[in-house]
Design a protein around this nucleic acid. Structure first.
Lengths: 216, 216, 216, 216
DNA sequence: CATGAATGAGCATTCATTCAT
DNA sequence: TATGAATGAATGCTCATTCAT
């Protein structure tokens, strides 16, 4: 008969995760100590160990969460896209990354900035942490799969060239998303519109027949 | 031991840098200890401190080197591009990233894989290390500038739409490069061809009159 | 381990201080390593850092304690002296320094020898450690002030010449105390009696008309 | 056939000693590294080891020099004193410490401030370095002996009470000197006059029949 | 003789983790 | 169940000393 109801347990775990995310976002995975996380969460130094076996497990959780929350709107979008051009898809996805706040599994708001900063750090972590690599790859594959599906449907609808290999096209879209994400959090380039405008121009110019002509 | 000639000193420094790069590439900046670096270089624990004031200075050196070496071929390419489409530029840049070995300032070969792995870690480091941020931003801006110049010249030549804002277009190209770089080292997607093929298809299809046409 | 009671915490802190004092007394501030202190205290290497932010803080604590404990009897004496000659004051103060054991803030006994040895080292430390300098100066001023007060009262009572400037006289007394302290711990001259006898002779001989007569 | 003449060798040794003294005076024995000393002397890192077997030997040299130079004028004074009171002797000795510059064995000027700061540090060093202890004690004993001799001669002349034990009296004088020295360098009390005036008052008041008389 | 590069033991300090209470 | 004191290995860095040149 646990004194802690499963709900309260889950809530406390989520608080620790949120605290860890704030710390990681601010100071990085390796500059954040477990006592830092506990202090940020307002719990004792030992408490996190009742919810996570190790610091690595917290990192793993946060890495998985970050990718999931960041790309969830992209996946949702891809799921319902039937006739979009790649430009539409990329633009919509980038726009989806530009909100201020995402929502975690418990329904609590999380600043997207935090997620993005954790995501960039996760990329480093993937290089030498197989568990993180596996979790991130899983998420990546799922998103690519969604996008590839959208591309296939768009090809059926004639919105994009039949010669595009959907899996490859999905990787190009993901590349643009990751590239933009990096420019936003690491290089401080928060202007998504210029970015999306030019993607649109580059990818759709011809669809209206004429720009793309020599200009001067 | 009398004075080291500047050449020998530089050579030894380069050896330590190379050892550090192997360690960082393998284990990450923060999982690599200074003794690890010294051991990898085959020198004593104190030796690296005769060439670098701190671990951070080694990281900074390697971060700067990595960006420089990775994007040097891209910059060289951009410098001579006059009439390329964005697809040509992106494809050529991605191809340039696909070599096995780069050459460092001393003329020694460096596995590109190592550089890329260090670059991804540098992205994390940028989030909370201002010196690394400054150095990386400097490199990023230089490459963007080169690419924007190439885009401007290509616009003059009519190879790309006049509506593309060169600075934004450069960011799109860099986004694709960073996105590909990440997919290669973190997600194990080393197949650059599929990636470049689809960029080409997506960006050039229309130039032959309508989307959906084969491109090559 | 649940929370330590403040008493137990204080007791443990005092144990670490005592261990550090033994080490410092034996080996000096700079020849004593933190692991040495921990080992002497019978705790782990990290434990002292739960009670002190740094080695310097331990030194500062011990420096302050040493001066306080050493000169406490002198101050107590000065506070109640009304009609003593300088010889009485100096003699009584020197005698006060000649006990074997002092009592620390927690009421525990501390060998005076240890305190004196730490005090001498503190003098070196004052030359380049401003925090130690400030703490020691504070103590020095307080003791001088007490002694000056006693001198003033003794002047009112006619026990010492009116031409003595109390602040200067206090410095002379302190000079004798410090000088004796040094001779005792550094030069091994533990015979306080010869020292005090001659101070007495020198300072009081004439008061009864001719030098060399006992005074009271 | 040494390429270095003994004179040049001695001169270089003296330069290293002077450099070390500046460093020790400024930063302390243990905060000064051997490279610091070499750099201050403008020689290579290995050079000091051709003149001194170890850092400790440099400390030993400087400790001995400091005591010798500081107390040389006192000894000279004591040697010629025949009829001085203790007050005269103490006052003259303190005055001798108040010059700006002393002269080393090679005839070069040395700031007295440096010597005093080194002397205070030597007191710490004596507590755990037997060689330093021996050298310092030797100097101390010699000075005490000189002073005791002066006291004896003054007793014969009737200038001081016969009941003063010359050895003890010498210790009292040395105590005053050490005490003043400490107040000057550690507590910043450079005013020797107030100090000596009051010694004089305290020790001589009665000799003119009653305390409280003006003394000068 | 002199140089200064190299060594490597040693230091202050941190921190993930444990576990007695 | 939760606490937070304790652990102790590990880290970045320094520096007295040596010795090849």
């Amino acid at each position: 008969m646990p004194r802690l109801t499963p709900e309260r347990r889950e809530a406390k775990r989520a608080e620790i995760v949120a605290a860890a995310r704030r710390c990681f976002s601010r100071d990085g995975f390796h500059q954040t100590s477990m006592p830092d996380i506990a202090a940020e969460a307002g719990v004792s130094a030992g408490a996190p160990y009742r919810y996570f076996a190790s610091k690595e497990e917290i990192i793993l959780t946060i890495a998985g969460d970050a990718f999931r929350m960041i790309f969830e709107p992209v996946q949702r979008l891809a799921a319902v896209t039937d006739e979009a051009s790649i430009a539409d898809l990329a633009t919509a996805s980038l726009t989806a990354l530009s909100v201020e706040t995402a929502t975690d599994a418990a329904g609590l708001p999380v600043p997207v900035e935090e997620l993005l900063r954790c995501a960039v750090q996760t990329w480093s972590e993937m290089l030498r942490n197989d568990a993180v690599l596996a979790r991130a790859t899983e998420g990546f594959d799922a998103v690519c799969h969604s996008i590839a599906g959208a591309l296939r449907r768009s090809q059926s609808a004639g919105a994009i060239p039949a010669t595009v290999e959907p899996e490859h096209g999905a990787r190009v879209v993901m590349g643009l998303l990751h590239g933009f994400l990096l420019q936003r959090v690491a290089f401080g380039l928060t202007d998504a519109e210029g970015f999306t405008d030019d993607i649109r121009t580059l990818l759709t110019a011809n669809r209206h027949g004429s720009h793309g002509e020599p200009m001067s």
